[in-house]
Nucleic acid binder design. Sequence first.
DNA 1: GCGTGTGAACACCTTCACAGCA
DNA 2: TGCTGTGAAGGTGTTCACACGC
Lengths: 208, 208
Amino acid sequence: MSDDPIPGATVARLPVYLRALASLAASGQDTVSSADLAELAGTQPAQLRRDLSYFGTFGTRGVGYDVATLRASLGAHVGEDEEWPLVLVGVGHLGSALASQFSQPPFRVVAALDVDPALVGTTRAGVVIRHQSEMADAVAETGAVIGVICTPADVAQEVCDGLVAAGVVSILNFAPTLLHTPGHAEIRTVDLAQELAILAFHESHRPR
Amino acid sequence: MSDDPIPGATVARLPVYLRALASLAASGQDTVSSADLAELAGTQPAQLRRDLSYFGTFGTRGVGYDVATLRASLGAHVGEDEEWPLVLVGVGHLGSALASQFSQPPFRVVAALDVDPALVGTTRAGVVIRHQSEMADAVAETGAVIGVICTPADVAQEVCDGLVAAGVVSILNFAPTLLHTPGHAEIRTVDLAQELAILAFHESHRPR
DNA sequence: GCGTGTGAACACCTTCACAGCA
DNA sequence: TGCTGTGAAGGTGTTCACACGC
């Protein structure tokens, strides 16, 4: 019941629930119903209850959920207790944006790499940018566990290979290309233009 | 069979197929099997054939698909023939990155807005940044159809309201917050940190 | 009474496996 | 023979609806 297989769709919603809980906590609310929390998270109440049921029993019937308790429990399951050191490869505009976005707990950018000599030596999110050729050293020294690729698409595969070789097995890829990997690293590709294309599809099929 | 309801999951894969087809076309290949195209797109052959079947019959049994024909047909369904004018709100690092990413056909950034006086008047992707207060005018003058929100989370909702008021009904939101809308505009929220959290979840549940 | 937790029904999506056609 | 197109099967995710406990 605790580490049975959690549906991927449920995992994807956990961060949303956590954010909603954080804002409830910030506004001083200490109890919340599945209806209200679902509303905040953009889901259905039944969906929310089902999702939570994979992790245990948190609510009180007739009352709802204790915000602080639920938040702590979910947070622990998502790994919010540990700190996740990231290595960022490619520090153009996108990389710079992510450097700050991804420096909030439980994440922290501990290394940033680029090939541009003009960028090497400058700072992002409190980290000095090093040259990409130092990847293996940078990963070893900082203990980075998750790699974030923000390079152009044509070099993303070799960057990915380098990260895997350096021991990074979780990779978030923002380059619009499919990455292949020898071992079983986990790679998630976020394709920004894809979302836009989906929007265009719906727009062009909109009933007029 | 042509405009029956297309599964959302299929729609989400179309951009991937189109990119794969583009790279095949670029490399001079004029025919491709479902197995090869699926490989390039990171899917299963049966999946690919099923997806294509929603749009018609494109292949030749025993042979495969004509790259150019398939590409043109899918492209038409996705709206690649028209040009989609975008209005970009919030031109920090993320907005700047998207300005260039989103200026490739069939998309074009036709207006960019920000509140920072230091940014107003400067140029991104060939467009001069205007002050956010001119949103209604900017949309009206440029005919922007899709809005892209790259502002901080705390102002995203009012930006969203402004866009809807200006007549923009398709919105891509990169601020980490849930947007509500009065009418039935279509809003897709891309939460960059969410993907990272999913990665952390898997990493912390990785068998050791 | 009220809201959770959950079996059961449902809808959606993916995969299999093979008939059908070049 | 080779590969597509697709009914049928299987799997995954969502919603219903109600028993249960505060």
